[in-house]
Deep mutational scan, measured.
Amino acid sequence: TTYYDVLGVKPNATQEELKKAYRKLALKYHPDKNPNEGEKFKQISQAYEVLSDAKKRELYDKGGE
């Protein structure tokens, strides 16, 4: 599973699309609303952290993490 899959976006997604997808999923899986989905929330946050940063995203796209 790639970070793009976690957020449900395509690899060519814009920053705005990433932000929108992250917010939607973060609300859905937030531990306050969904106590059993803490791990999913962490995955979503990690994916967004990497993909929202241009340098980290470039490194990730080249095969790094």
Rank of each mutant, 00 (worst) to 15 (best):
P35K: 09
P11C: 10
L59C: 11
Y60P: 02
K20R: 14
K24W: 10
D5L: 06
Q15K: 08
D32F: 08
Y3Q: 02
L7N: 00
G38R: 14
E65S: 12
I44L: 07
L51T: 01
S45P: 00
S52F: 06
L25N: 02
I44G: 01
Q43K: 09
G64C: 15
K56L: 14
A21V: 05
K20Y: 11
T2S: 14
K24H: 09
D53A: 04
Y60K: 03
Y22K: 01
K19T: 14
K28D: 07
K62D: 06
D5Q: 08
Q43G: 05
Y60L: 03
E49T: 07
N34V: 06
D5A: 08
A54L: 11
D53S: 05
D5F: 05
V9T: 04
K33S: 12
G64Y: 15
A13L: 01
D32W: 07
Y3V: 02
V50P: 00
E58F: 10
K24Y: 12
K62Y: 07
K55Q: 11
L59W: 13
G63D: 12
G64L: 15
K33F: 14
Y22E: 00
Y48E: 01
P31C: 07
Y22M: 05
Y22V: 02
V6L: 14
T2C: 15
L7V: 01
N36V: 10
A21R: 05
V50K: 04
P31Q: 08
K19N: 14
L18I: 15
V50N: 04
G63H: 14
K62E: 07
D61C: 04
K56T: 09
F41G: 02
E17G: 04
K33V: 15
G8W: 03
K42G: 05
N34E: 07
E17M: 08
L59K: 08
A54S: 10
G63K: 10
K62I: 08
D53W: 03
G63C: 15
K33C: 13
S52Q: 07
E16R: 10
D61K: 02
K10C: 14
E17S: 05
D61V: 02
I44N: 00
E37N: 14
R23I: 15
Q43L: 14
E16D: 12
K33T: 13
D5S: 08
L27N: 11
A47P: 00
K42Y: 10
K20D: 13
Q15Y: 13
N34A: 11
Q46K: 14
K20T: 12
S52V: 07
Y3N: 02
Y48V: 01
V9I: 08
N36R: 09
A54P: 15
F41D: 01
K10N: 10
D53T: 04
D61A: 03
D61W: 02
K28N: 06
S45W: 13
E65L: 14
F41H: 04
Y29K: 01
N34M: 07
T2H: 07
K20I: 14
A13T: 05
L27R: 11
K28F: 10
Y60M: 03
L59S: 09
G38T: 14
E16H: 09
E17I: 05
E58Y: 09
K20L: 14
K42H: 09
Y48R: 01
V50H: 05
E65T: 13
G63A: 13
Q15L: 14
L59F: 09
K55L: 11
K33H: 14
G63P: 06
G38V: 15
E37D: 13
L25T: 02
P35S: 08
E65H: 13
K19W: 15
L18Q: 00
G38L: 15
V6D: 05
V9M: 04
E37I: 06
K40D: 04
A21F: 02
N12A: 06
L27G: 08
E39C: 10
L25V: 03
Q15M: 14
E39V: 08
R57D: 02
D53R: 04
K40L: 12
T2A: 07
Y3T: 01
D5Y: 05
N12H: 08
Q43E: 13
